[in-house]
Amino acid sequence: MMDWTDRHCRVFHRLMTRRAMLYTEMVTAPAVVHGDRDRLLGYSKEEHPIALQLGGSDPAELREAVRLSAPYGYDEINLNVGCPSDRVQSGCFGAVLMERPTLVAECVAAMQEESPVPVTVKCRIGVDDQNPEEVLPDFLEKVAAAGVSHFIIHARKAWLQGLSPKENREIPPLDYALVRRMKAEFPHLTICINGGITTLDQSRAMLEAGLDGVMIGRAAYHEPGRVLIGADALWGDGPGLDAVAVVHAMLPYIDQHLAGGGRLHQITRHMLGLFHGQPGARGWRRVLSEGASRPGAGVRLVEKALAEVTVQAA
């Protein structure tokens, strides 16, 4: 979710669910060590619970990145061993590390030396010609021996050559049964599942099958009203804000962002799918898409876009 789940996106998503863990974009360890940490790691206190997702393959560098991020108060530090992007592979980050479980174990051991919160791992079931039935349990065993007890498993292989990141999310077949078997084989581990899950009903079925959690990425981004509103019912909580109330709740945040020199589209680009499938959704998207980048655009434009939905609904 690089370039997607920034701080504005997460504030917006938090208004729809009090319970779900939110994850940052993947931030590389070298960027944390050498870059603008406040820009990379800063967030609003309203975003809790929130996990920092790191990318890297150098244990010492990851240890330092965790040390530097500790004062920011994240609830979890996650090492991404699942992203198949070319720009990630070139730095030996992401899914390519599925081929090097011993190195991953060294990385997480180093991270835990500096982390005041749990260190977790997001991975694939394998890459390229690996046999997931063999490599995934070996990977879990070796990384768990280094002290990690929480894994988020994308239930697809990643093909490091020949498929784009988008194709890697769609073409390799899903193997949910394998992930369930990993939970049965490693009952002491927290095993969450990711990949191809787009509804709360699917999520509930995964939990009822014995898995410990479900990660939803692009469906939650593109159709947040359908996926995130109502998600807290999985914990037995009552309903929260509806989509219209979420927009109203965002207006003070938008005002504050604009007062600090920000642009409206930096926030509203994350809000386009809120009313997906509802009357007026096209008008909502059109008003925001056409107007949010214009100089002087502000909350009145958002209210104008909202009128497209509320008038249609009436």
Rank of each mutant, 00 (worst) to 15 (best):
T5N: 06
R7D: 12
C9M: 15
C9I: 10
R10K: 14
R10W: 12
H13C: 13
A20T: 04
A20Y: 00
Y23F: 15
V27I: 15
A29H: 00
V32I: 15
V33R: 06
H34A: 14
D38I: 03
L41M: 11
E46R: 12
P49L: 07
G55K: 07
S57K: 03
P59V: 00
A65C: 04
R67T: 04
A70F: 06
Y72T: 10
G73H: 09
L79Q: 01
N80S: 02
V81D: 00
V81N: 00
S85G: 11
Q89A: 13
Q89M: 13
S90W: 11
C92A: 09
V96C: 15
M98Q: 03
E99W: 03
T102N: 09
L103M: 01
V104Y: 06
V104G: 02
A105G: 01
A110G: 06
Q112V: 03
V119A: 02
T120N: 04
V121Y: 00
K122M: 00
G126P: 03
G126V: 05
D128W: 02
Q130M: 15
P132C: 10
E133W: 03
V135K: 13
L136W: 15
P137D: 10
D138T: 15
F139W: 08
K142M: 13
A144C: 08
A146N: 06
S149I: 01
H154P: 01
L160D: 02
L163K: 05
P165T: 02
P165L: 01
N168A: 11
E170S: 15
E170M: 14
E170C: 14
P173F: 12
L174K: 07
L178H: 14
R180I: 04
K183V: 08
A184W: 08
A184N: 07
H188A: 14
I191H: 03
L200F: 13
L200H: 14
D201N: 09
Q202L: 08
S203K: 11
R204F: 13
A205V: 14
L207F: 14
D212T: 10
G213A: 04
A220C: 09
A220L: 08
H222F: 11
H222G: 07
P224T: 13
R226D: 13
L228F: 11
L228I: 15
I229E: 08
D232P: 07
L234K: 12
G236D: 07
D237C: 14
L241M: 11
V244D: 08
H248M: 11
H248F: 12
M250I: 08
A259N: 10
G260Q: 08
H265G: 12
Q266P: 05
Q266E: 15
M271P: 04
G273H: 10
L274Y: 00
F275I: 01
H276L: 10
G280I: 03
G280L: 02
A281Y: 11
R285W: 14
R285Y: 14
R286D: 10
L288A: 11
G291Q: 10
L301N: 05
L306K: 04
